[in-house]
Amino acid sequence: MHLKEPERYNNELSHTHISDRKSKYSFEHLSDNEIWTAFKSGNEGAFVYIYERYFDSLVNFSYQFTQDEELIKDTVQDLFIYIRSRRSNLSGTDNIKLYLYKCCRNNLLNSLKRLQKGSKMSVLENEFFQSVLSAEENIINLQTRKIKENKLKLAIDQLSAREREIIYYFYFEDLSYKEISEMLEYKEVKSVRSLLYKAVKKLRGIIIAIHGLFHFLL
């Protein structure tokens, strides 16, 4: 016996969806401003797109401040709950990443302050933005490489938390001076540049020692 499928059943089966990787499609070509406006006006796809796009980097960013994965999870989750529940009241932005990072940073620092009530912020800050700068990969001798990496790490750790943070934004997150000045609430964009200048100046000797040796490779 071969029963024909009812017509309605056919319809039912076509109401299917594809993974988020595909639904992203329609947002990829839009500007931050357009995506944010869509999200604010209640577009769920835009919200999911923003979540998918920035979740990983927000987690990684938060990790620069604390090892506490539960706190990181809560912070990032609360951030998205916040923007979702107040979507229509949020201000506009043409830089979603910066907007989210700034919120995330403020909130995380406040949580950390609260959790570490006894200790001074400066003690806490020593742990922020620990670099794992690696020496040139062409160094075949592992031991030499280790020594160089350690030297570089030592040099970086001598920097202030603020200097390390700026290095992180500029070289690791590829933010511009203007974005960094907004993130850290500097009035003048050029103060960020001079802070970075000071920081790399402290590293100059070690940079030359490590990376300057391989010129012959060119």
Binding site: Y51, L152, I207, H211, G212, F214
Partner: peptide, 30 residues
């Protein structure tokens, strides 16, 4: 070349949650 190598070597610790955790957090949010 020296400057480029330094810039490329700027690495920081990384943390990544699994897809399941990421999905779980999204459903918490919703």
């Amino acid at each position: 070349k020296t400057a480029a190598e330094f810039i490329k070597s700027a690495k920081f610790k990384t943390l990544r949650f699994s897809t399941e955790e990421k999905d779980q957090i999204l459903s918490n949010i919703i």
